[in-house]
């Protein structure tokens, strides 16, 4: 990755994330889940420029086919080779703050979250719970899943589980201000 690319990155990522913020001021509603996707997909758009060739695993034993991993937008090419290049290059320390998920929210996840939402509205909380656990298995690190799970538990007056789920969701929401706000609001509601 060249310095120019890095500069572009460091300028654009916050801008894009910020634009998401104005784009979708109240992420709190479940219907607005899609509001996060621009932020994530923006990384999808930008990052490929920094992905070089994917290394392949060194197959050993009887495995005859070399294994390549699915294109991972987060991977940075090149083997670490200490001090091999002469030009000092600062690494943007802010970069880690962007806790952008490596995968965009899948249609499957959105469909299941919506299904759970309508099951909950129809008063069928147990089914909604099952649907959300399906969603969780597909995207176990997506805070949106925990947001909805926590809200459902709150709805069921199960305050303890609601709180733990909100905390877990919050721990997965670094760098996502809206999500953090949503979880903090929720935690206040739970403790009321």
């Amino acid at each position: 990755m060249t310095r120019a690319q890095k500069a572009v990155l460091s300028i654009f990522l916050p801008v894009i994330l910020a634009s998401c913020a104005t784009h979708d001021p109240n992420l709190v509603g479940v219907e607005d889940r899609s509001g996060q996707s621009p932020g994530r997909s923006s990384s999808q758009v930008l990052i490929p420029s920094q992905t070089g060739t994917l290394e392949t695993g060194n197959a050993t034993g009887n495995e005859s086919t070399a294994r390549s991993y699915p294109a991972d937008s987060s991977s940075i090419s090149g083997q670490p080779s200490e001090g091999s290049e002469a030009i000092p290059q600062p690494i943007n320390i802010e970069a880690p703050v962007m806790t952008v998920q490596s995968k965009p929210p899948s249609g499957a996840l959105l469909a299941l979250l919506e299904q759970a939402e309508s099951q909950q509205q129809a008063g069928n909380n147990q089914r909604a719970l099952s649907s959300l656990e399906r969603a969780q298995r597909i995207a176990p690190r997506d805070p949106a899943v925990y947001l909805q799970l926590s809200r459902l538990r709150l709805d069921m007056k199960d305050y303890q589980r609601a709180e733990q789920l909100a905390r877990k969701g919050l721990s997965l929401s670094s760098g996502n201000k809206q999500m953090q706000r949503a979880f903090n609001t929720l935690l206040k509601q739970i403790k009321r």
């Binding site: 987060s74 940075i76 670490p80 001090g83 290049e85 880690p96």
Partner: peptide, 16 residues
Amino acid sequence: SKVRKAVNWFTRLFSS
């Protein structure tokens, strides 16, 4: 003594 650091694993932690 300054050296240019190559990308190392710990810069990859959160990647993205």
